[in-house]
Amino acid sequence: MLLEPIFWSLFSLGGFITAFLFPVTLFLLFFAAPFHLWPTDPAAYSTFGGHWKEPLVRLFFFVLIGGSLFHGTHRLKFMLMDAGFKGRSAEAFLDVILNGVAIFGSLGALFYAVRGWLF
């Protein structure tokens, strides 16, 4: 069965998620404090750990991680195919590995998002 329509849908959804949410998140977590561009350090353990108690924040990071993984692995698949990783078996191999990373990564994010909240 052709799975591409399903993975393309997730890829597109992930494209919207990463485009709209990634730049601001990465800026706040990775650059705001080291470059002194922000009054506080949003990534500090006490600050981030404090926000992490809120369900909305957990949902946000689950969506962000899942979306970016489905988006990026799909693009990586086509970049590798373009670079010469071709043929039915090569494509099946890429599908299993890359979609596996996306699926297990999303499940992992879901696990940490509900851990300590729902159970």
Binding site: S68, G72, L76, Y112
Partner: peptide
């Protein structure tokens, strides 16, 4: 490449 980097950051965030 930017799209692939996003997935890399997804793993970093995870």
């Amino acid at each position: 490449a930017g799209g692939v980097i996003c997935a890399l950051y997804g793993l970093v965030l995870l």
